[in-house]
């Protein structure tokens, strides 16, 4: 079964999934599904690109989508912020994906397929999200921020994955003055377990 066929099957089954069942209630969601059907004919140039060996939990389409979205969502050029390519954002996303329970992971996979494909008609971009230029990708996110609850949820999840995977890295903290761990640096005394309450101490003395 091709990737396109898999996507088609997944989209067709969405209505039975609890997480996304309400998707079919919203007009924008209908557009998203329609976008999905267009996209089966609309392959991306990145579809055939290889995925690094270290990727364990991201599906190939998810890897490419996240890779393209990172610079769009974290445009640090011209600032003192740490460039995202200097921290392992994608590795962190891959790790986080591996922590999700099976049900949520499956639902998220479907959601990401939708979000990617819906760009074909949502906003009339005519391309999948993975192929949008950074400016258009950001506009797409802004549109989904104002969309129905499922769109709001999906765009929020993607942002959280990318932003959390970036900001969890200590290299990103100095530019925003965040100190990070301080106990060792400050030489704080380790207090250990609290002694027994006084009443007990008297009893056991």
């Amino acid at each position: 079964m091709s990737e396109s066929d898999k996507a088609a099957e997944e989209v067709a089954r969405l209505g039975r999934r609890p997480f996304l069942k309400s998707l079919l209630w919203g007009g924008a969601a209908v557009a998203a599904v329609a976008g999905g059907s267009f996209a089966w004919l609309r392959r991306s140039g990145v579809d055939d690109e290889p995925v690094p060996d270290w990727v364990r939990h991201l599906h190939a389409n998810e890897y490419h989508l996240m890779r393209r979205l990172i610079p769009a969502l974290l445009p640090v050029a011209g600032t003192n912020l740490t460039p995202p390519e200097q921290v392992p954002v994608l590795r962190n996303i891959d790790h986080m994906m591996g922590l999700l329970n099976t049900t949520v992971r499956k639902d998220l996979a479907k959601g990401l397929v939708l979000m990617d494909n819906a760009a074909v008609v949502s906003g009339w971009h005519g391309k999948r999200l993975v192929d949008l230029e950074p400016e258009a990708a950001r506009a797409y996110f802004d549109t989904w921020t104002r969309g129905n609850r499922i769109q709001r949820a999906l765009q929020g999840v993607v942002k959280q994955f990318i932003y959390t995977s970036y900001w969890r890295e200590p290299a990103t903290w100095p530019p925003v003055d965040y100190d990070g761990p301080v106990t060792e640096e400050w030489g704080l005394e380790y207090l250990g377990n609290a002694p027994l309450p006084e009443a007990d101490q008297e009893q056991s003395a």
Partner: peptide, 10 residues
């Protein structure tokens, strides 16, 4: 998204 987030975190 994007610049908005960067401005926010700065």
């Amino acid at each position: 998204a994007g610049q908005d987030h960067i401005d926010f975190m700065k």
